[in-house]
Design a protein around this nucleic acid. Structure first.
Lengths: 126, 126
DNA sequence: TCGTTGATTCAGCCACGCTTGAAACGTACG
DNA sequence: CGTACGTTTCAAGCGTGGCTGAATCAACGA
């Protein structure tokens, strides 16, 4: 049977396997750095690849908006919208600030840069 | 209860609901066009948001490769790799050509353009 | 203080996409 | 021919991410 490699791995760990396979593991650091970049890219892309989150980011790219304002543009339940906003927060694509009872969401300063850098073939934006 | 809108919709149909909510439905065509662009963007992004497919595209961005060559860079079973390649083919990000027993895969000419255009906030690449 | 509104969190369910094993296809070589 | 190789397709199983309903928090006004 000689199982080649354990195939029940999470994205992050799969990245290690890919890195180990892609290059003969010459030094030590550059591979790990590329694996980290790939992980970050996948996190960003998985955040973008959802209709609700895509529409939210598209609206925020125009201008910052409070949650209730966003909700007018995205026909989903409040708690569900909050769930998607949390995903965007967790990967650092948006920033929040309280204003009275409302919470304003804006695109993070480096959001566009990270999105472009997440595309395959970017090679670290050279 | 007065259910606002049916919430059991696919990405494509959700786009219609979003388009209907985002703008007051002024004319007829521009909304549909934006909905179509959003759909295509989501299809592309969902294709990118997978470790295997991302690595494949990253390898193809460097140069065209045959399947067996790709397989050396992506540690997955052959049939699984074929499945992911089919996803990339179906959304037009890669093109194929037979060469004897082998099949060469290359990045589609407009792949990079479509990837960049799929990011939210692009607004049709103005 | 209480009630209301805006927003988030929690626990559970369910469908979809990824993965797998086996079989089928196309091509080259003996 | 038959065999071996590269690649694709098929029919399942399984796990995870998205959705829902109810509870919770945070801030303002009466």
């Amino acid at each position: 049977m000689t199982p080649r490699t354990e195939v029940s791995e999470r994205p992050a760990e799969l990245a290690d396997a890919i890195a180990a396979t892609a290059a003969p593991a010459r030094g030590t650091s550059p591979d790990a750095a590329e694996a980290g970049a790939r992980d970050d890219a996948l996190t960003v892309l998985q955040a973008l690849a959802d209709p609700v989150r895509w529409t939210v980011l598209d609206a925020l790219a125009e201008q910052p908006r409070c949650v209730c304002d966003i909700q007018e543009r995205v026909p989903v339940a409040g708690n569900l919208l909050s769930y998607h906003l949390k995903v965007l927060r967790d990967c650092g694509l948006v920033t929040t600030s309280r204003r009275g009872r409302w919470v304003d969401y804006s695109l993070a300063p480096d959001a566009r840069g990270r999105m472009v850098a997440s595309l395959p073939g970017a090679g670290g934006t050279p």
